[in-house]
Amino acid sequence: MGLPGVFFYLFSAVLLGSGLMVVAARNPVHSVLFLILAFVNAAALFLLLGAEFLALILIVVYVGAVAVLFLFVVMMLDVDFAELRQGFLHYLPTGALIGIVILCEVLIAIGGYVIAPDEIATVPVPTPGAISNTEAIGQLLYTRYLFYFQLAGLVLLVAMIGAIVLTLRHKEGVKRQSIAAQNARTPATAIEIKKVEPGRGI
């Protein structure tokens, strides 16, 4: 097994434990913090597989950006914890169904690997050793899968534009900052010097 094996079981155990705590924690902010722990452990598992680029991208994108926004939203929501518990039985069938579907999919994937490993092995994998991981991903992504890559970018662009369209409102009567106008101000237009007589006021 060796040291990598020890680390694999360590990271996997922490990953599963924190995944459980995401669901079980009473405080939603604690849930998000456990989710972050799960992400970091998943990145560590990627590192053990030798996929260092994926591991760090996972941390940059999910932990550094997505989870921050998660935390942001959860912290600002004034969640009533008692109320959250009440709907448990109501959501149980849906949750159980989704869980069973995911379990079946995982079983099919692992079962396929166990029954016919040769079929799975034909999936292209970057040649290890000769070139770095980052280079291998880049070469595949920008040549063979260029259209899929651009398609994914377009989907994200549409989502971004959609979010802006949904939230952007130009209300009448709202004061806005005009940086150009602010920078264009000079003492001549902004200041008025008055001579104040003693005891009179302006």
Binding site: V29, L33, I36, E52, F53, L56, I57, I59, V60, V63, G64, A65, V68, L71, F72, M75, S132, N133, T134
Partner: peptide, 25 residues
Amino acid sequence: DINVGILYIFAISSLGVYGIIMGGW
């Protein structure tokens, strides 16, 4: 001397916000 050093530093510095956000909350 890892071959994704700059990415590592970028990832770690992007995590720096957690200390502040956790402390503030």
